[in-house]
Design a binder for these strands. Structure first.
Length: 107
DNA sequence: ACCTTGACCACAA
DNA sequence: CTTGTGGCCAAGG
């Protein structure tokens, strides 16, 4: 199933993601919280279907991991925007976003 | 009105 | 690090 594209929830989520500045990030839970919801999973579903045309890599999981199954595609964006990262080793195989440093809260 | 589906979250072992 | 458990919530069937 799929969430309605014209749903207010979808519109708001995409709007929030669009408002995240380069180099900063928010978690799925944070985005949901802005809408007064705790439905982090719903945000994830929206991103899965409609995240193609927004800076989806600026929405990460609570632990600082990029969207599931999209780590490789997200890394170049973080390098471009100078997003604070925590590298597991010198290799780029494993990494996390420095959530405490890159966290963004809309005003 | 119930059941299922998730790019999720938190905590425990 | 890896499971497992319970919770969360909008939308489709």
């Amino acid at each position: 199933m799929r969430l309605a594209p014209e749903s207010d929830f979808v519109t708001h989520v995409l709007g929030i993601v669009d408002s995240i500045p380069a180099g900063r990030v928010m978690t799925y839970g944070d985005v949901a919280a802005v809408l007064g919801s705790r439905g982090a999973r719903v945000v994830g579903q929206i991103m899965a279907h409609y995240g193609a045309d927004v800076p989806w890599w600026r929405v990460i999981r609570a632990g600082g991991h990029p969207p599931a199954l999209h780590e490789a595609r997200a890394l170049p964006h973080y390098r471009e925007e100078g997003t604070p990262l925590v590298l597991v080793s010198t290799a780029e195989a494993g990494y996390r976003v420095d959530y405490s440093a890159a966290r963004w809260s809309p005003s």
